[in-house]
């Protein structure tokens, strides 16, 4: 009797100990994972900075504002690549955000049930297509179509607008900054759309039904219930898409034209940071050339960082405003 009681206690204690140890191991292994991520980012930054240092030392701030990229004379400036990266990403967002929004709202609010699954699956499939496929499709299918049918129209009708016209003039090659932006837009849609859809689906039905119950239209429900409820996630989804647009390499390289010249027109070829890197890194010889390319990488790192920081800042402002509205 006594014996059994004793051994029972022992097992409880033993099990408790084992649980504690497991817990300790678990907690620390998750911590290690988190710390490793931080370490990797830090190590990347440090090694990029060390690699880029010779270029920064030689060109100084001029590196950021010079549009020269001449491997022969070893004069390098990042302006063309920075401009191309930002402009293509803006175009991609202008196209991608509204369309993915529409898709997500359609799926969650308006779509008949039998269509829901096929549309969702199609979007997920689009997200799984490798970027090189988008690039090849862009080069062989989209660019010819765009150059033959859309660009002549663009330069004829939009090229004449004062100021803005500069953005849309030039020969209809089908290859250039605008094409790259559009391809990027198509590429980010599935990502953002599936994030948005998942977000909108977690909005409690009771909230939406209450709104419908007091006579709100679908648009009002989306604007006043769904969006406020999911805004943090929505900003996150947009950032995810923007991150992909900023860093996309292969698809852009295929259709942007890869010219290291600053052109005012969106129809003309340009270059982005990641496509410059992909094109030139393998054959870059000489310290200054390599170092300038690494400096481009560091700048891309920095741009992504700034974008994330700005997004966080906006979110903070949004949450602060909460409750002040009536």
């Amino acid at each position: 009797m006594e014996m059994t009681q004793n051994s029972k206690d022992m097992t409880i204690i033993r099990r408790g100990n084992a649980g504690q140890i497991l817990d300790f191991i678990f907690a620390n292994s998750t911590r290690i994972c988190a710390v490793i991520v931080l370490l990797i980012i830090f190590a990347m930054m440090v090694s990029l900075f060390i690699g880029a240092w010779p270029a920064f030392k030689k060109f100084g701030l001029h590196f950021f504002i010079s549009d020269k990229w001449n491997p022969v004379t070893e004069e390098f400036g990042a302006l063309v690549a920075i401009y191309g990266t930002i402009v293509t990403s803006i175009i991609a967002m202008l196209i991608g955000v509204p369309v993915s929004f529409g898709i997500a709202i359609f799926i969650t609010e308006l779509c008949p049930i039998w269509l829901k699954r096929p549309v969702s699956t199609a979007i997920e499939l689009l997200a799984a297509i490798p970027s090189i496929i988008y690039g090849m499709w862009g080069l062989f299918v989209f660019a010819p179509f765009f150059g033959d049918h859309i660009e002549p129209w663009i330069s004829e009708y939009l090229g004449g607008i004062p100021f803005l016209g500069h953005l849309f003039s030039g020969p209809p090659l089908g290859i250039g900054v605008l094409t790259a932006g559009i391809i990027l837009g198509i590429m980010v849609i599935p990502f953002m759309a599936s994030v948005f859809r998942d977000l909108f689906e977690v909005v409690p039905a009771v909230l939406k039904e209450s709104a419908y119950g007091i006579g709100a239209t679908t648009w009002e429900v989306v604007k006043m219930i769904v969006l406020p409820y999911t805004k943090i996630g929505v900003v996150g989804g947009v950032m995810l898409g923007l991150g992909r647009a900023l860093g996309e390499t292969m698809a852009v390289t295929f259709v942007i034209g890869n010219a290291d010249r600053l052109e005012s027109s969106l129809l003309m070829p340009g270059n982005t940071i990641s496509s410059s890197l992909a094109n030139q890194f393998t054959e870059a010889v000489g310290q200054m050339y390599t170092s300038s390319l690494i400096a481009l990488g560091l700048i891309l790192f920095f741009i992504t960082f700034v974008v994330l920081a700005v997004a966080k800042f906006f979110l903070l402002r949004l949450t602060l405003k909460e409750g002040q509205r009536t």
Binding site: P71, V72, G257, A259, E283
Partner: peptide
């Protein structure tokens, strides 16, 4: 312009690889 594996082209558009 000069002679190198990549140069600052005065005009034109760039394709990636021979196929580009």
């Amino acid at each position: 312009v000069g002679n190198a594996k990549a140069v600052a082209w005065p005009v034109g558009i760039g394709g990636k690889g021979n196929e580009g």
